[in-house]
Write a protein that binds this DNA or RNA. Structure first.
Lengths: 353, 353
DNA sequence: CAAATTATTGCACACGTGTGCAAATCCCTT
DNA sequence: AAGGGATTTGCACACGTGTGCAATAATTTG
């Protein structure tokens, strides 16, 4: 009944064994046998075809329900390369920004009858590549992604086009890839936030950011620099963090910045967790926010503001991003060539405390 | 090249249309044709069979890589009901507890070569049922789930057994279902937390909980009541919230509790978001924590404690839960009948501030 | 009542893959 | 050169489903 065979597969960085299990499932042929009719008739009856007599249709549907028949999607998809799964690939889901967007897109897609799968790259290019290849193997209808920090090469994403699987990138995108994109006006909003700091009198503003080859961070760094230039400030300091953002990194980076000969009096943090870490470190150092140090963070945590740590928050339009992303991927699933290379730029807002 | 057909499908509560797209993909037959050999030889070559000559093997693999061939998992799964996808079904991923556990299980599974899909029931029984049926249709290797608040009937989960798809429930489980379970000692830890409140002098302790038919909440309510009884306290007050937990609900519930004739002097909150809401309301009312009101919350947010709102946190062992869950689902994927109806009870801990 | 029309059902194939078995090719030995 | 074993390749089928087409059954028509 249950025969198990072992299968060698080359994974990210190790050879592992996948155990494939063989079990028999209830099929239309079982129904056909029991009802003494042909399985093609069963198929038509289940699809509600009017070429099947009402009696047969009724009998088949009732019996199918009785024995708990479920169609085998693999057969269905194999037959016609039928697809009803949308995959979402994000660096992680513990950043509220990602889990919010993912949640919202998933709900919209579910309502339209799609199955939504969520995948985490863990900010690893290799894992991201592995995931994308797996998605091709699994015949997904469409892919929504925000790339990892390590991702510079976009070959794995190009492969999706080869298989005519539509792709929509959001937030973090590949600049060299001509594909549907949903982005936030990072440069503009960070420039504004920096100006707010300047207007409030801070003169030594440091920017804790990510690798500049990622549009999100490159744009923010450009916005930061343009604001400094506009106001003729000399001091400029960008710390680029290459791996994923954590609270500890926020703490450490803040600590080392405060050790530098020219101490910053304001921190512009590109991630919610970084700003939290920075705040903890600042409190440890017995400094006050915003009197001693100004903080700008990305407030993807809806309730953190309620603790009123005195920071300025840049808020991304999660719901708008999600609905735009879904609208575009849906359009492209219906017609692969539609909205290709379309870029939407959505406005972030700033909450001053 | 791209023929699109429309398909009527009965969804949760509406009839919707799924657009199935037909595209042709690169197959081993393409490789066979180009290399003028039989597709079965290609198949063997790709699998690294030693019955294929070294030259042919090399030629095939190089060509496959060159044209970007990816195996069609649908065909693979259809052939032998091969399965390499683990599905995780949770009420949502915006509660840190769930996103943490999901994240960790996903990573462990990925390392073993499984593909992990994450699904949200949104605390809805109907959506949960829909998801589970879809998982059966899609031939998953195993299912990990934490049920929605609405889930009382477990028929949809039983259906998994019929198809011999292993199931591991964690945290919120179905009491009437004989299946592998990973739980936390809720009753015990809540009893302890309640006793801590009592020892600190609080006498009117209210409990904001969930529907008692869910083990997690039923157990916690029992723990709460047993502690009160043990210390001979009269006041007992349980507010049962039937839908998902939000910050606003925490606020509202706290507000209404403080309007009652006997005002509670401590709140035991069954969710992180509930306790946050309660804290905000308490601050609004100009009350102090812990002087005026004691708060116990489920601290599934690792950094919230750093804001030191003066609360007592019950911390669940996320990593241990995740590794236990994965260990069990893996065992059951290898052998469906192993560890069935095994129940693991893991210890939560209390952080006093 | 026979013929024509329509309603219903069965047959066979395709989708992409892997594998048992047979056929074909190769190399070695005598 | 012929036989024999070992190596390599091809053939055919199965997995579950849906659909064009043909065959049958039921109904209507003249």
């Amino acid at each position: 009944m249950c025969k198990s065979l072992i299968f060698e597969v080359q994974n990210v960085n190790q050879t592992i064994f996948i155990h494939y299990i063989r079990v028999k499932r209830i099929t239309i042929k079982d129904i056909a046998r029991d009802l003494k009719i042909h399985h093609s008739t069963v198929s038509r009856a289940l699809r509600g075809s009017s070429t099947v007599s009402f009696d047969t249709r009724k009998k088949v549907n009732e019996y199918a329900r009785e024995i708990g028949y479920q169609v085998n999607m693999n057969a269905l998809q194999l037959r016609g390369s039928l697809k009803n799964m949308i995959a979402i690939v994000v660096p992680n889901i513990y950043h509220n920004f990602f889990s919010n967007v993912v949640s919202l897109v998933a709900d919209l897609a579910f309502r339209k009858g799609f199955v939504v799968s969520i995948f985490q790259s863990n900010e690893s290019y290799l894992q991201e590549k592995e995931i994308v290849q797996m998605l091709i193997r699994n015949n997904v209808a469409g892919v929504v992604a925000s790339v990892s920090m390590e991702t510079q090469d976009s070959g794995h994403l190009r492969a999706l086009s080869k298989y005519r699987i539509p792709l929509v990138l959001f937030d973090r995108v590949c600049p060299d890839l001509e594909v549907t994109k949903v982005m936030v006006n990072n440069q503009e909003v960070v420039a504004s936030a920096t100006e707010i700091l300047i207007e409030r009198g801070y003169r030594h503003i440091a920017h804790i950011s990510g690798p500049s080859h990622i549009n999100v961070f490159g744009d923010r760094q450009a916005g930061y620099l343009s604001a400094l230039k506009k106001h003729g400030l000399d001091y400029q300091r960008i710390v680029r963090i290459e791996s994923g953002f954590t609270i500890d990194q926020g703490k450490e980076t803040a600590a080392s910045l405060f050790m530098e000969k020219t101490r910053p009096d304001a921190l512009l943090c590109d991630s919610h967790l970084l700003s939290l870490g920075a705040i903890f470190k600042i409190r440890e150092l017995q400094l006050k926010i915003p009197e001693d140090v100004g903080i700008v963070g990305f407030g993807d945590n809806p309730y953190i503001d309620s603790f009123n740590p005195g920071m300025i928050s840049i808020v991304q339009p999660d719901a708008l991003i999600a609905s735009t992303v879904f609208e575009l991927i849906f359009k492209r699933i219906e017609n692969f060539d539609a909205a290709i290379s379309e870029t939407k730029m959505l406005p972030a807002s700033i909450i001053e405390k």
